[in-house]
Each structure stands twice: as C-alpha cells, then as structure tokens.
Simulated assay, not measured.
Amino acid sequence: MKHLSFAIVLFCFLPLGCAAISEQARLEEYGRTMDSYETAMRLSDFNAACQYVDPSAMSRSDCLNRYDNLKMVSYEVLRMNLSKDNREVTQTVDVEYYFLDRYIAKKLQYEQSWRYQEEEKTWVLNTGPPLFK
C-alpha cells in the first residue's frame, strides 16, 4: 500500500516537475538565442541577425535592407521584461552605428519583442530592426 500511495503522489507531481524542466529549457534556449543574436549584431553579421526575425513580422529581404550600408559599433541590452508565462520578452536596446559612406556615429534606443514558438522550440524576434537614419 505504501508503494501505491508513493506512486500516486509521484504521478501527481510529475507534471509540475516536467513543466518546470520545460520552462527551464525554454529560458536556456532564450539565453543561447540572445548570445547568438547579440554576437551577430556586434559583428554586423546582419544575414545571421535577420534569421531570428519572424517572417510574419518582416520579410528577410526587408530586414536585410534595413541594415544596408550599415556598420554596428555597439549593441547593448539595457532592460529586459519577461512575461508571466515566460513566452515573451521585451527588451530595450541601445545601439551605436554608422553608415559606411558617412562615418558619422549615431545612437539609437529601441524596443525589441521576442516570442517563443512552442512548435519549433525557438525564440523569434517579433519586431524587425528599427529604421536607421
């Protein structure tokens, strides 16, 4: 009888444990995604950065056009807000950049919105890059 009650208790708490493990995996994936995205931005590898943009938010060609003739000087996340369900992240980002034909450094602060896609187990950028002027 003891074994049966232990099995019932274990069975009842198993979904909670699985949910916590799933949430941890989702947040670890977010960390890996941010590391890759930030590296791409700092290296001005916009081809790689545009791979993270949700195609329903902006086409790949439109994303690449936003970075045309641009060199990133710095990329820094200032603030990050995680939704209660840990499936959306809003970040305030500060960037410094210049256009290759002008060499005048400019600064821009903007908001990014990331969403976790459960089916693909990936994070995507809901907002494309800002308009650099």
Rank of each mutant, 00 (worst) to 15 (best):
Q91T: 11
R42I: 08
R66P: 05
A57V: 04
Y52T: 07
L10V: 12
N86Y: 12
I8C: 14
I104V: 14
C63D: 05
A19C: 06
Q51K: 09
T90N: 14
T92V: 04
R32P: 00
D101F: 06
S83P: 08
A40Q: 01
M72Y: 01
Q109R: 09
V77R: 03
I104K: 11
V77Y: 02
L43S: 14
F99H: 01
L27Q: 13
S59A: 04
T90H: 07
E88Q: 09
Y98V: 04
L82F: 09
L100F: 01
P55S: 04
T33N: 10
R79T: 14
Q51G: 10
E88P: 02
E28D: 15
F6H: 13
T39D: 10
P55Y: 03
L4W: 09
H3D: 10
S22Q: 07
C18W: 11
R32D: 11
H3E: 15
E23Y: 12
E29L: 12
M80W: 06
L78E: 12
R102Q: 09
K84H: 06
M41P: 03
S36W: 03
P15V: 05
E96D: 08
K2Y: 13
E29V: 05
N65T: 08
G31A: 13
A25P: 01
P55V: 04
Y110F: 13
S44W: 01
C12T: 15
D35P: 02
E76M: 10
S83G: 08
L82I: 14
R60E: 12
D101Y: 11
A25G: 05
L78A: 11
G31F: 07
N69S: 07
K106Q: 12
E29P: 02
Y110K: 03
Y52C: 05
Y37N: 04
C18I: 15
F6A: 12
Y30D: 09
E28L: 14
E96L: 04
A105S: 13
V9N: 04
A105L: 07
K71E: 11
A40R: 01
Q91F: 00
R102L: 08
D62N: 06
N65R: 09
E28I: 09
D54C: 02
F11R: 02
Y97F: 13
A7M: 10
M41L: 15
L16W: 13
I104P: 02
M72S: 07
A19E: 13
Q51D: 15
Y52G: 00
C63N: 02
R42D: 06
E28K: 09
M72I: 09
L78V: 10
R60N: 10
K2R: 13
P15K: 03
L27I: 13
T92M: 01
F6V: 15
A57H: 02
L78T: 07
M72L: 10
S56M: 07
V89A: 03
D35G: 09
C63T: 08
L100V: 06
S22T: 08
L16D: 11
A49K: 00
T90S: 13
Y98F: 15
S36H: 11
L16I: 10
Q24D: 10
D35N: 15
L43T: 05
E29I: 10
M58P: 01
C12I: 15
L70C: 01
S59I: 05
Y75H: 09
Y103K: 12
P55D: 02
M72F: 05
T90F: 07
Y110H: 04
D94P: 03
E38G: 14
D68F: 08
V95A: 03
L4I: 14
Y103T: 07
